[in-house]
Design a protein around this nucleic acid. Structure first.
Lengths: 182, 182
DNA sequence: GAGGCCATGTAAACTGTTACATGATTTG
DNA sequence: CAAATCATGTAACAGTTTACATGGCCTC
């Protein structure tokens, strides 16, 4: 996933590896972390394969390496962005995509969000069945903590669906969160 | 993390690798997946290192391998279960722990949940600051999708905190989710 | 001039996936 | 008797973390 994040981050400006790390931390640090050990070798590889253009520029006594996305990189990035949002991919991948959704034309963007919503709904239905089965048991208390993780999952899916609907309609984001919490 | 999940799953009965895979799928499949390629080699390793006891039993024309946790395994598992719930670990790790929380005495369990709650609160406060900064900008619409992932993060943290409080008090789990959703 | 940040990398280890390979048992 | 499921594994690859290593620039 880091490869696509790098491609997405280097569209508006040529950035150094260090810059990219900071952009990742500030932009999607809530749900994704990158280490230099993964970042630098990947930058080298992406440049070698033609997805990034490198330009070395002297800065004082130092050679800085600036990376920027190439046409080939743009194409690969766009393909990732518009690829199916099924639940085989993890939530972080979906969030990273949505982070870059302003790069997508409105119709494809909403098709993506609709697909994600539908997949989430289908999965939620399955969890509801599970929940019903467990609720019918007589010794539920014995499984309180085990069940609590199922309910956590249900809640997150409910949020996912709400979120999809919310941002499809471009509604005010402050209405998505609970106000006066804490 | 899989090592601890295996240890936790093999306490109540001796299980085959195949059994463990199914237990994982049914129990925590919502947020964690294990492949045979990671499971079988790890079972072998955990047995060699003394965390699991193997017993081979013939079944028809077949030798089945049953794994069960050892005293050494119990100790390692308990250590993991009672280790700090800071936000360096990912959410899946926390959920897996809570899944096994009936193995922990009530006082340590609640200490763990309180720590998780406090860490989540501290992180949420940081995100509130970020949100405030962004809300003050005039060209917010340009960053709608980027911002949407921040609001998603805030919402999840709010849920986390609600969840911690909920299960600390052992409240009815059905009250944690939104009813009549969909 | 010291401490903090900027900047680039490598090496070993760890963790896990995917695809392959094989064969027994059960069930309709 | 075919298909599904049970059952155990390996090999190649992929992705990532952690710790190490180095040194320049900026600000107080």
């Amino acid at each position: 996933m880091l490869n696509y994040i790098i491609l997405g981050m280097t569209r508006d400006a040529a950035l150094t590896g260090y810059d990219i790390k900071k952009h990742i931390k500030n932009g999607i640090g809530t749900f994704y972390k990158a280490s230099y050990g993964s970042l630098y070798p990947l930058l080298k590889k992406l440049a070698e394969e033609g997805y990034l253009i490198v330009s070395e520029r002297p800065y004082g006594n130092r050679q800085k390496k600036y990376y920027q996305i190439s046409a080939q990189g743009e194409s690969a990035f766009y393909q990732w962005l518009s690829a199916s949002m099924d639940l085989n991919n993890n939530i972080e991948n979906h969030l990273a995509k949505v982070y870059f959704f302003d790069r997508l034309p409105a119709d494809i963007r909403n098709r993506q969000l609709q697909e994600y919503e539908i997949n989430s709904i289908n999965y939620l239905r399955k969890l509801y069945v599970l929940e019903k089965d467990y609720a019918a048991m007589e010794n539920k208390e014995c499984f309180y903590y085990k069940l609590s993780t199922l309910y956590y999952g249900i809640r997150i899916l409910q949020d996912n669906i709400r979120w999809c609907r919310h941002i499809q309609k471009k509604m005010d984001l402050t209405d998505f969160i609970e106000e006066d919490f804490l």
